[in-house]
Nucleic acid binder design. Structure first.
Lengths: 334, 334
DNA sequence: CGACGGTAATGAATCGTTTCAAGACAAAGT
DNA sequence: ACTTTGTCTTGAAACGATTCATTACCGTCG
């Protein structure tokens, strides 16, 4: 494997000069730059990043740990982070925790060994020890889509309480009163917050009721099962708020097939959360709460790169946005 | 930041011994191991992977470049690769090319600088120069979901010609004769092969016709537009084969909404490709061609890790499998 | 009692790059 | 002619972990 030394010899210059051609071409005479680059091309020299990092003391990469790579929302977040990082000539190491604290922790260890510039993470576990340890070791931690007011971590998130409130208020405005919320495990803070928002909206209408249906995972399949139960229920709700679009899509499939006897939105209105690309194009296009996913990724990188001390915001919170489509369209059922 | 040296001093041993505790604990007396590990814990020492790599000459990571991280099929492939890699204490660097040759090439450069153990890739471009260069530089390249008989790269793939044949044969068996194929850009080899398979199946029935509808990208949105056109067409086909599930879902949405005047599968049968999780739970559950996505990822890693010379297979080809659901169910329309 | 074998521990050399103080050289100024 | 200024280039040190030849030590055996 070709090293700077080989290049130096072949070009008849010192290793220092080769390095300068690579990193500070302005410090080297044009003729020399030319010659060295020629040799580099001929020999097919490629920098050894390990050596470079070793010298530099830190890497040029950022670690990103998300709950689930398969979830389009997080795929979007990752895209945003990558784009922003690329602009700074940095690289994103992407890890999917698949909801498992073990995998999350494995990635954190890895990132530590890699001396990443920082870690962007949507934590699964509530075990913050690992994160604090990173922080203490000088590796900044940025929380993504999660906030912890009492902690010192910087974060970029979307107001989930407001999102939940928006969703359910919208249903109420449409005249719905018997609201069901399909919620994932309450241990997930995003879920808890959206539920809280839903409760607040319902509290504003004395004649409205709220039923919470808890599921084990935020997947299409779980949503489908819940939808099935709703379809067959005696006292069917007239509106459903699913705390994530995957769940909503599942519910929709159970309700909206021909001959189900239930019409969406006429009989049951449905709203999801995240506004994944797919939501815009389900059978009955799905109303949803949009989160600026890509922006979340970009901003997380911004936050990481900002001067660590003082200056910028430490916590950025975006506001979610209601997107109305057919699944909640039409006049009130009442 | 704590280094082996610091640990050595604190534990009253030499750096060599600390290293041995880390890598060959059997060579060190139990008492010393104990003491050193204690100190490591106290000081919060974490190996610097850059230094380790530099010395070792190669890294412990594998590069994976896929067409699109957002596509559930590739998310699955990545999962498989990660699992297998983890078993060998290796790590997968995941890069999404987003269909862009530039991004693909950027990742390859990065992986080269990282001295990855090998690169698993589903190439976007036909420009193999970069891949050959990698190979020449001693970084093995494994093609994923793609095959190039005339090239020397090892590969793991699924027989796309057979898949296309299976799909369309199934439609023909159901009595359909006017087949439309919704195909992505023909420049994508997977697409071309599936189309080829479709042609072969049609050729076996003299009374069957095949219409090819080419789209620019393999997305739900594109599928939807095509579906719209099909719905309104004068001489509507009685069956549609979409070369990927995202397209199929799009087509389905344009056809299968209440009041569209078209029933699936009665009027138009529909089959997709990939059998993504989502396919099983669309409004009209989607028939599809299943590919062992996770296995593809696992096997790619296996291939990479196998003895480079001689011995094992160089090319592994899986067979796709027909999965019948409602979108092609029911008796023949004829 | 001395040689031997085996186990533990050592410390210098090494990987490939970047940095930086110092040197070489030429052009410009006095 | 001699200093000054500035531009290029050099070569050695440093980053942190691993390796390996060497040394130290202790108990055994002849």
């Amino acid at each position: 494997m070709v090293s700077v030394k080989d290049v130096a010899v072949a070009a008849g210059v010192s290793v220092g000069t080769v390095s300068n051609v690579l990193n500070h071409p302005d410090k080297v005479s044009p003729a020399t730059v030319q010659r060295v680059q020629q040799v580099i091309a001929e020999l097919g020299f490629v920098r050894n990043d390990a050596a470079r990092q070793l010298r530099a003391g830190r890497s040029r990469s950022i670690g990103l740990v998300v709950l689930d790579v398969g979830n389009p929302f997080f795929a979007e977040v990752a895209r945003g982070a990558e784009q922003r990082a690329a602009e700074e000539n940095l690289v994103v190491l992407l890890g999917g925790a698949d909801q498992s604290p073990e995998r999350e922790s494995a990635y954190l260890d890895l990132f530590r060994e890699q001396r990443v510039l920082g870690v962007l993470i949507t934590p699964v576990s509530d075990d913050l020890a690992a994160l604090r340890r990173l922080d203490a070791a000088g590796i900044p931690v940025i929380l993504v889509d999660r906030e912890m007011p009492e902690e010192s971590f910087r974060s970029v998130s979307v107001d989930d309480v407001e999102g939940g409130y928006l969703a359910v208020s919208h249903l109420l405005e449409r005249g719905r009163r018997r609201i069901a919320v399909v919620a994932g495990p309450a241990s997930i803070p995003q879920v808890a917050d959206r539920l809280e928002g839903a409760r607040r909206a319902v509290a504003e209408h004395s004649d409205a009721t709220l039923e919470v249906i808890e599921v084990a995972a935020l997947t299409v399949l779980e949503g489908r099962e819940v939808g099935e139960r709703i379809r067959l229920a005696q006292d069917r709700p007239d509106a459903v708020f699913a705390v994530n679009d995957l769940l909503a899509v599942g519910v929709l499939q159970a309700l909206a097939f021909a001959g189900s006897g239930v019409r969406v939105p006429e009989d049951v209105a449905l709203i999801g959360y995240d506004d994944i690309d797919f939501a815009a194009s389900t059978v009955v296009p799905l109303s949803s709460i949009r989160q600026p996913a890509r922006m979340l990724g970009r901003t997380a990188v911004d936050l990481l790169l900002a001067e660590p001390e003082g200056a910028g915001e430490r916590t950025i919170r975006y506001r979610p946005e209601l997107v109305v489509r057919e699944s909640t369209a039409g006049v009130s059922a009442n």
